[in-house]
Computed example of a mutant assay.
Amino acid sequence: MPRRTTQTPKHTHQTLKNMSFESMVISWLMYDGWQVFTPILDNGHQTDILISDGPNYHRIQIKTVEASGDDHWVENKWQDSHVDLVIYFARNSTWGYIAPAFADQRRPLNHPEHARFAANSRTEFLKEFHTID
């Protein structure tokens, strides 16, 4: 059985975990029938995933947060970037939120326009994904 015998640097390990959330969302959206595109570089456009149903395209940003509860506040870091949705995962828990991009400078994760999902459930994620306008 393969065994990792080297130490992964802390920042590299965090990047790997963050990318795993992106890969999970990509998989879930493909399972749901979306065409999924990943930019070679998202610097400036702040788009981690671009999805399409054919005629329509939507930009998605994936973020991880160190949140101790649903009332955690998030900063708007995508203003003027044309992002449609931001999907948040709590790094230290098993839940996330889907949020339409908003104009406020800050907003709580549990805002009424956001949809909460279990981070380990494709079914729950897709159910909540389809409720977002």
Rank of each mutant, 00 (worst) to 15 (best):
I87V: 15
S20C: 14
R106E: 13
D42E: 15
P39G: 12
H114C: 05
Q7D: 12
R3A: 12
V36H: 08
L41V: 11
L126K: 02
W34V: 05
T64L: 06
E124D: 15
G44I: 06
I26H: 00
F125T: 06
R122E: 11
D84F: 03
H58Q: 13
L126R: 04
N56I: 10
I98W: 01
F117P: 00
Q14G: 01
T6Y: 15
N43R: 09
I60C: 06
S121V: 06
K10Y: 01
A103D: 15
Q105Y: 14
Q14H: 05
D104I: 02
T38N: 11
S121D: 06
Q14S: 14
S93T: 11
L16S: 12
Y88E: 08
I26L: 08
H11I: 00
T94M: 07
L50Q: 11
T8N: 07
K10C: 04
Y97K: 02
Y88P: 00
H11K: 05
W28C: 00
S52L: 12
D71M: 00
R106L: 10
H130S: 07
N56W: 09
T47I: 14
L29W: 06
P55S: 08
N43S: 13
Q105F: 12
E66C: 02
R116K: 15
A115L: 02
H58A: 14
K63D: 07
A119G: 13
N92M: 05
G44R: 08
G33Q: 10
H45F: 15
P39L: 15
D84A: 09
T6C: 11
G96N: 03
K63N: 04
Y97Q: 01
T12Y: 06
M24N: 08
V65E: 07
P9T: 04
R106P: 00
T131A: 12
G96S: 10
S52N: 14
A118I: 11
A103G: 10
D32S: 10
W28L: 05
Y57L: 11
M1V: 13
G33F: 09
P9A: 09
Y88L: 09
I62V: 13
A67C: 05
R91S: 01
I87F: 03
P100W: 02
D48C: 12
S23E: 14
